[in-house]
Nucleic acid binder design. Sequence first.
RNA 1: GUGGGUGUGGCCUAGCGGUUAGGGCGUCAGGUUGUGGCCCUGAAGAUCGGGGGUUCGAAUCCCCUCACCCACCCCA
Length: 438
Amino acid sequence: MTSPRAPRGMHDTLPEDADLWRFIRDTAERVARLYDYRQIGTPIVEDASVFLHTAGDESDIVQKEVYLFDDRGGDRLALRPEGTAAVCRAYIEHGMSSRPQPVRLFYIGPYFRYDRPQAGRYRQLHQFGVEAIGTDSPEVDAELIDLQLTLYRELGFAPDELTLRINSIGTAETRRRFIEVLTKHFEPHVGTLSRDSQRRFETNILRVLDSKEDAGHPAVQNAPSILDYLSPEDAAHFEAVKRHLEALGIAYEVDPRIVRGLDYYARTVWEVEPPGAGGQSTIGAGGRYDGLIEVLGGPSTPAVGFATGIERIALNMRERGLGPSEERAPDVVTVPLGERGPAAAAQAAATLRAAGLSVRNGVPGRSMRAAMRGADASGARYALIVGDAEADAGTVVLKPLRGDEEQRTVAAIELSSVELSLDDHAEMDIDGDTVQLF
RNA sequence: GUGGGUGUGGCCUAGCGGUUAGGGCGUCAGGUUGUGGCCCUGAAGAUCGGGGGUUCGAAUCCCCUCACCCACCCCA
């Protein structure tokens, strides 16, 4: 009998990963607030229709990746595979169209897709998403891209380490026209395309354009560009987005082959990825989804947003050695000895904790040597030694484990006023701004 | 969903038909009596991912299965 493991494609976050994760979450929330976005939380499960009617019937997400189940009352529910549709559902449900527009929202949490796991692709994944609902202003498209890139920069990515690629896929109407053109274009060449592309020719012809297999195929390279089929309004919108990006000093590449996997996108779409470009390389992507709220039964409402994968960010940060470098260590570790030492040490620890210090209780019953080894290995700056002699005298021995400070004996009741040289911490607090390393 | 690779104590890894399955890191205990970091000694911990086969004999060969990884697909 083998013991149970975490479900396939789902992972534990271990203490050694937690610091990096928290750094990413804290930075994401901080940056979102910098742009005056406010947090929204939605349930992990939704009525299945929230996702099934919005993502597009041909999308893989709907075809095979949604975790679907009936609850005990017979309602059809889905584990959320993405955030945007749920946020829009909440926007409608809570009448947010009567708040000042656009409503600026962000969220962070787990999402679920029944997919074959590989590096950077998991069945339970975590996304940070940002949405601006209620405006079609191209400035807001640029604002979101700016916010997203600011996040990456704050996390430590150099500007040239990430590539922003943008495109406009027009409205549903322009796409319908473009698909006709594309179908005529590829029709004579279908036989020479890869099997995947042949399938996509039937199901989602836009995807033929960014097939990796057929990237060198003449018919793909000579394919018409959707940018030539935009309506004047869409083209003007796209031009405005680009102008605003330039005004913000943001470098971008226009890539007319970008399409999105979810049908609700319209006009601006973008992706951000490291130049290396591996398999699951996109770390964040976004776009405009002007039709989504109407599909969900709300008033016609334009909106833009992006989502970025925490795991993929973490993956890239680890590759680059970015993120908090400090090991998390307690300030003080107690070394309880003898009969009465442990109780007195625990009291001393409580005093220090009340003063805001992180104190680890040493394990009683060990030899002093072992206890000191443990204290040293913890990375703490001080060992607090309390044996029977100290317990009886109401004192405590404070031994610095780093630096050349002398060991001293202090009265237990005066512990809260004893000055400990924890300057390293203080400086780091200032330099790291809100980067809490301890 | 398609194709390929990998799977040895908590972690890294040697072994590639006959070994008590070896080492490093880590953990725990010691190196005399209450003081750590180096060093030394010892201990615990592996049915060699799981199941089935071939063989006198399998971690080593074969089959199935599971998990992970890579590419595709898709996507964050």
